[in-house]
Simulated scan of single mutants.
Amino acid sequence: MDKIRLDKWLWAARFYKTRSLAVQEIGKGRVLVNGQPAKPAREVAAGDLVSVRKEDPPMQVRVCAVSSVRGPAPVARQLYEETPESMAVRERAAEIKRLAPEPALEIISGRPTKRDRRLIDLMRGKQD
């Protein structure tokens, strides 16, 4: 077996929990094969470049092997290898996310209380 359906390979490589989820994501255009949108029945073989956009930035992997059965995670990890460019981009994005300030820290006192809301309305000129 040297080729397999894309949805079946994504399921066997543990990118998606079910084949139907893989089909949905492929249909939404979140999976590219060799830089082009693909259909679930598209056949992939060793050496193909698959881009999977589960989170941002997308993960680009090269197909190393094909399997029609879903095995344990360590075995599934051997079906593909992530490209060095993809690893660098994902690490850079993780670093930026880690260094970004927490948006909730800007809120010092939290939500306005009912009394605060009434004072705000009074200052704005809105009175009941």
Rank of each mutant, 00 (worst) to 15 (best):
R70P: 02
G71A: 15
G71Q: 08
G71F: 09
P72Q: 14
P74A: 03
P74E: 10
V75D: 06
R77N: 11
Q78N: 12
L79V: 07
L79D: 02
Y80K: 11
Y80I: 00
Y80Q: 04
Y80N: 01
E81R: 15
E81M: 05
T83W: 06
T83Y: 05
P84K: 13
P84I: 10
P84Y: 09
P84V: 02
E85D: 03
E85H: 11
E85A: 03
S86K: 08
S86H: 13
S86C: 05
M87G: 02
V89R: 15
V89W: 03
V89A: 07
R90H: 02
A93Q: 13
A94G: 13
E95I: 09
E95F: 11
E95A: 15
K97S: 12
K97V: 02
R98V: 00
R98W: 01
L99E: 08
L99W: 00
P101N: 06
P101I: 01
P101T: 05
P103N: 12
L105H: 11
L105M: 09
I107Y: 15
I108C: 05
S109Y: 09
S109F: 15
S109C: 08
R111P: 06
P112W: 04
T113R: 05
T113C: 02
K114S: 07
K114F: 00
R115D: 01
R115F: 09
R117S: 11
R117F: 05
R118F: 05
R118N: 01
R118D: 00
R118Q: 06
L119N: 07
L119V: 02
I120S: 12
I120L: 14
L122F: 12
L122I: 15
M123E: 11
M123R: 06
R124F: 00
R124K: 14
R124Q: 09
G125P: 11
G125S: 08
K126R: 13
K126T: 10
Q127S: 09
Q127E: 13
